[in-house]
């Protein structure tokens, strides 16, 4: 019991630390990749090739003046950035990040907790991310924030459907909702081979869920100043960004677990495989952002409701038919 408690605590601290650190360094990675795509060098001043840039940014944000607008709803204004960060950080509790290891004769699974409804837990938490945006935009009492929040909310509701439906195919093949089981049933073949459409839909819908370019209408700089976080400054502003970047890591980890075989892989240690795959998916998200222009609002809604949703539904039906034909 004591052993279990200690290992779980260590795992929680480890996941928390790594997640926050990678969220911080993702900002640097994004700026570096953006620079390379635009034929620049990116941050070079702080440390070797800008390696200390995230720390410098963090210190700067920490010492900025913290402004709360006079007419804002104070409690909700403070609460909103916190609500953004919580679901992003908690989701990682159910994601297995390595093969079980043996310590002192005990088998320790490298996963904080193995819930038997792992996927639903992730979906439930990701559906709550919207509150931080909506409450933040509303509590600021500014028209740009409100417009950004309403746009974002409408967008997130539209894409959440396709996001949830794109996973159903994986659940059907694995026959289980537990993420540890899903990873172990991919030991021979990754699910991306059976579910290429599901993978693509999840990739697109999750980009929209995170409000990243090309789906960043909620914070379109040209029209809405900065969207829902216009009035935020200092650490509250930073919280929105920690939330966003942690969500990129989490979504990459979910894609890795559901479609790319999780930690399964030959030769290298399992944790390394997991990190490698997550890194590749993260790069895809960043690559998206610096390649595509922003969609118009009606195009965004058309893509969500008229293309992704029917495709996701068709994917489920086709998967079901093939499974029956193959007699699985």
């Amino acid at each position: 019991m004591i052993f279990w408690l200690i290992t779980t605590l260590i795992k929680i601290l480890l996941v928390f630390g790594v997640l926050l650190l990678s969220a911080a360094y993702l900002t640097l990675l994004e700026r570096k990749v953006a620079a390379r795509i635009q034929n620049r060098l990116g941050p070079m001043e702080a440390g070797f090739h800008g390696i200390l840039q995230p720390i410098a940014d963090g210190i700067k944000l920490f010492f900025k003046e913290d402004i709360i607008p006079a007419d804002a709803n104070k409690i909700l204004f403070i609460l909103a950035p916190i609500i953004v960060v919580i679901p992003a950080l908690t989701t990682f509790a159910v994601i297995p990040f390595g093969a079980p290891i043996r310590i002192l004769g005990h088998i320790v699974p490298l996963q904080i907790t193995n819930v038997n409804i792992g996927i639903l837990f992730i979906l439930a938490l990701s559906s709550l991310g919207i509150y931080g945006v909506v409450i933040g935009g509303w509590a600021s009492n500014s028209k740009y924030s409100l417009l950004g929040a309403i746009r974002t909310a409408a967008q997130m509701i539209s894409y959440e459907l396709s996001l949830a439906l794109s996973i159903i195919g994986v659940i059907m093949i694995a026959g289980n909702l537990s993420l540890a089981q899903i990873v172990s049933s991919q030991a021979h073949m990754w699910f991306i081979v059976y579910q290429p459409v599901g993978f693509l839909i999840y990739l697109i819908a999750s980009t929209a869920e995170m409000n990243r370019v090309p789906f960043d209408l909620g914070e379109a700089e040209g029209e809405l100043v900065a969207g829902f976080h216009t009035e935020y400054s200092s650490m509250k502003f930073a919280f929105y960004f920690i939330g966003e970047y942690a969500q990129i890591v989490v979504n990459s980890a979910i894609i890795t677990t559901l479609f790319l075989g999780g930690w399964e892989g030959p030769f290298l240690p399992s944790v390394l495989w997991f990190v490698l795959k997550v890194f590749v998916v993260t790069l895809i998200y960043i690559w998206f952002r610096w390649t595509y222009p922003r969609l118009r609002y009606d195009e965004l809604m058309d893509l969500g409701w008229k293309i992704l949703l029917p495709l996701a539904l068709a994917n489920i039906v086709v998967t079901g038919f093939i499974m029956i034909l193959l007699g699985k």
């Binding site: 409804i117 639903l120 837990f121 979906l123 439930a124 559906s127 709550l128 509303w138 909310a153």
Partner: peptide, 26 residues
């Protein structure tokens, strides 16, 4: 009943109340 718990959050907290909040905001 973990399944019901997840559905409670996913459907009610994540979808229905979001719509109510949107109406209040609009």
């Amino acid at each position: 009943m973990q399944f019901l718990a997840a559905m409670q959050i996913l459907v009610y907290a994540g979808a229905i109340i979001v719509l109510i909040v949107l109406v209040i905001m609009l």
